[in-house]
Nucleic acid binder design. Structure first.
Lengths: 396, 396
DNA sequence: GTTAATTTGTTCGTAAGCTTTACTAACAAA
DNA sequence: TTTGTTAGTAAAGCTTACGAACAAATTAAC
């Protein structure tokens, strides 16, 4: 096998596109060829270096179970494509030939992530392969919907593509609404999009691999990848803003649902005692109880800090009531909240967790944790980057 | 190898498809070798013939995407092992060499399934590879717990093994309680089992591949495999008996949960208006509302049929309230009820579905269906068989 | 009634992928 | 200087799937 000759990066991208993602998400009816095994193992190497910089070929061989020979071959290929670089020799004083340390070359490619979930503006960024934001831009949305909104998206991508420091690996998009497995926006009322094949439109226009997902799904992917140290493989992320949405990872894989509409918790009725009227017409929806706008409004009218706390705790309790069956049935290990920290941190979050504990078998869920996301406003944006990284390199 | 099937190879397939579901973080994704691809493709062939009897090699090649050459090779191997037989030539009148039809040889191997979920007796059966019960036996449990209960299990297997019509492919067990990924019974209070490595005990004693799973999980697998025609890939099965349990399939894969305790819906509190006191100490648990015993009891006291119906509908509503958030978040497409038909069919089931519709966005869940299982009392037993079929042959 | 077209399943040679075995290089410790 | 260890490479071999080519069996066409 000859490597190190492939200097054409576009060709390399082409190969990676085919390689994408390894065996995950494989439908039981799909054949598997030896080359799929190869690309899976290739992703394995990248994954190791994505997590830990400065591993030797032998280190990777040990941790993957593949032989040093095979790893050498894969690493050679990846170095040839520019994805991996040799850092030099390990400094340790120990017997044997010193190891040559390797690292992901995070600037071999860049990638584009977009967040279309903000009502005020579309956000986009150029990332390196490590998931670090290199350049960030926004475009105020105004009242743009339909075709106009689409043009805004195109314009953002074009602006980011203009600065050609590194070839672009792909584009990831986190969009509100229902997004199917083919990256088509089934329906996004706020954007006036219905059955819009966004993935294919972008892919054709920019001749790049594109992945489109629901914003809450993108967010939970970001949380899964960048969030906590020991990434939980069963977690739910609750996004609280104008609406309330959820993204879910079960057994390490994002859940999209039978009609690509998973995560719809905002309009689930909670409790058996009515509740505030919701925009959807029902009484007592989760969204009617805990949407950020309503919470802020109520807080303003609160007589004193104690009353404010009670209000937040009551709202948190409602979310807890809705989540308890989900936590019980899925045996989730982690709940992450995303939204205005001032509203959610403290009494609200405490009440959510406490309510879930009270309403399930607390022993079983003793290890259940609840925390605020550490990714702040960028959560969807970074999730969009994860879409590309995991889709094109099998890394996350 | 005592029988003709390369179990190592199939175990490899299991590892591949479940990769990443185990120890989070510590174990990334397992390596994949060409031979794993081979065993995957092998399962693909079996799967085709499992679903449809009388396909030719060329048919299978077309539907899998593999070439006729490869399929011929795989089929040759499977015929060599006795798993597949040639039926003869296709009778159609069409040009070309007539096709040789193939079928799964369902008696090439038998397998053993066990249902330990019945409080009164343990049930076991010998199945053929098509999932048909060949022989069925039971052992009254009496008050047996702990070691005694284990001995009962051993005795049942021994009785089934005595009749050596076909070699045994493996043993599948559906057990109550919490069962981890290694087939260890973490805790099954009714059986007095704690941290019992049931899988390994059986495997060592009988020198056969063994798979152990939670009873509700086994049941939902049975439903997924044998239940409806167009197997939904996102469904929940609710078992209502002395207790209330749930088994869940998301994206075509069974869900075990972060601590192997998924499906625990029985002791989730439902509603915000109290409710009957539950054995667990809380008020208003699902189980306290809808356990079969309570329903039957209430029905006896009902003044007239209309009152009885109202009682059942009220109970169904409670289950619906608990399920609504789960359906909303996971976007499930199918709910299946298992339990006493006389209690669950009719007003109860209707109320469950109606309540869920009222408490979620009904458009999104327009295709949601709810039905009784068609598998009756044998559901866990047959699920145990599926455990073996899917674990050893990759078929389901 | 003969020839052409079509479909099935096999044989043979090849490319890809990983492993085993065997080697060189480079180092620490005694 | 010797011994033992570790890193990485090279060569050979096995497995897996593929493409090309072909024989067999049958229908369709003339």
């Amino acid at each position: 096998m000859t490597h190190g000759v492939d200097t054409d990066r576009n060709a390399a991208v082409g190969r990676m596109t085919r390689a994408g993602g390894g065996l995950r998400g494989l439908r039981p009816t799909a054949k598997v060829l030896p080359e799929h095994a190869r690309s899976h193992n290739r992703s394995l190497v990248l994954q190791q270096l994505y997590r830990t910089e400065g591993l030797s070929r032998a280190d990777i061989a040990r941790s993957t179970g593949l032989t040093r020979v095979t790893i050498s071959d894969l690493v050679g290929e990846l170095i040839g494509e520019g994805l991996i670089t040799e850092l030099g020799q390990r400094e340790d004083a120990r017997p044997g030939k010193p190891a040559t340390l390797l690292a992901l070359n995070v600037h071999a490619f860049h990638l584009i992530g977009m967040d279309l979930s903000d009502k005020v503006a579309f956000h986009a960024a150029r990332f390196d392969l490590g998931g670090t934001i290199i350049e960030r831009i926004s475009a105020p949305r105004g009242t743009a919907v339909g075709e106009d909104a689409l043009e805004l998206v195109y314009a953002l991508v074009e602006r980011l593509l203009r600065d050609e420091t590194s070839p672009i690996l792909g584009i990831g998009v986190g969009s509100p609404g229902v997004v199917d497995g083919e990256g088509r926006i089934r329906t996004a009322p706020n954007l006036g999009w219905h059955d819009l094949p966004l993935r294919d439109l972008l892919a054709e226009r920019f001749e790049l691999p594109v992945t489109v997902a629901n914003d809450a799904n993108a967010a939970v992917l970001a949380e899964h990848t960048f969030g906590s140290q020991d990434a939980a493989s069963d977690l739910i992320l609750i996004q609280i803003g104008a609406g309330v949405g959820a993204g879910l990872i079960v057994d390490g894989a994002p859940v999209s649902g039978s009609r690509s509409a998973a995560g719809e918790i905002g309009h689930v009725v909670v409790g058996t005692d009515g509740g505030p009227r919701c925009a959807c017409g029902k009484d007592g929806c989760v969204e009617a109880w805990v949407a950020a706008g309503r919470l802020a409004e109520q807080l303003e009218q609160a007589a004193d800090p104690a009353a404010a706390e009670a209000l937040l705790a009551a709202a948190g309790e409602r979310l807890g009531i809705a989540l308890a069956p989900v936590v019980g049935v899925l045996n989730l290990s982690e709940i992450v909240l995303s939204g205005p920290t001032t509203l959610l941190e403290g009494p609200f979050a405490d009440a959510v967790l406490e309510t879930i504990r009270q309403r399930t078998i607390s022993d079983i869920h003793a290890e259940l944790t609840l925390r605020m996301t550490a990714l702040g406003q960028d959560i969807v944006l970074r999730g969009a980057a994860v879409l590309v990284l995991s889709g094109q390199l099998g890394v996350s």
